[in-house]
């Protein structure tokens, strides 16, 4: 990592992504501090030392300090609400793995809903292709979104692979669907 050609390596906060000396301006100060103390104890000692904190407030008027404190509180509340919203969204998001019969005994498997879990569909499609040694691509769906279409019937394998590789997706949020073309045909015939 210490490559002089890269220039200076600035460590970024693992929680709010800013340089740690700016964590105080985000809404996740507590979490940022915990992360920094664990990951970069030396930096933590420097940034959050009593002397540094005093220098930080000394140059502000009491009034400005009060305003800043109020602002920080508001931000923290906002960040918490956003986090809760995101958690709720994840809890209600479903990944659908659908087996579709294209021709007689020819299947494709369509996977939708992965983007809700922050996954890059192109990357995942590539992973599928490699893992199952089969065609796999991102295609648009009429409703406006995108899904991954994998050649062949690999529904179970995909479920297993997702659970293993992308731990953010709870097992209960994966849904397997069988889209049989012949069903209708069979019903009509019957």
């Amino acid at each position: 990592m210490a490559d002089p050609a890269f220039g200076r390596q600035v460590a970024y906060c693992g929680v709010c992504t800013l340089p740690p000396e700016y964590c105080e301006y985000g809404g996740t100060v507590k979490k940022c501090q915990e992360w920094l103390q664990k990951s970069h104890p030396d930096m933590y000692a420097r940034i959050w030392s009593p002397e540094a904190l005093e220098a930080a407030t000394a140059s502000l008027s009491v009034e400005a300090q009060e305003r800043a404190a109020k602002d920080a509180k508001k931000k923290a509340a906002k960040a918490e609400a956003a986090e809760q919203k995101q958690a709720d969204k994840l809890a209600n998001s479903v990944v659908t793995i659908k087996r579709i019969e294209r021709n007689k005994r020819k299947f494709v498997t369509a996977v939708s809903g992965l983007e809700a879990f922050g996954l890059d569909l192109k990357k995942v499609a590539k992973d599928f292709g490699k893992k199952f040694a089969t065609g796999s691509s991102v295609t648009k769906v009429p409703s406006g979104g995108e899904e991954i279409v994998v050649q062949g019937d690999v529904s179970d394998e995909i479920e297993e692979f997702l659970l293993e590789k992308y731990k953010d997706i709870p097992e209960d949020n994966i849904e397997l669907v069988d889209d049989k073309k012949s069903k209708k045909a069979a019903a009509a015939a019957g």
Partner: peptide
Amino acid sequence: IDRGAIRFVL
């Protein structure tokens, strides 16, 4: 910028 301006800029 001075310290007081940071939170506005951010």
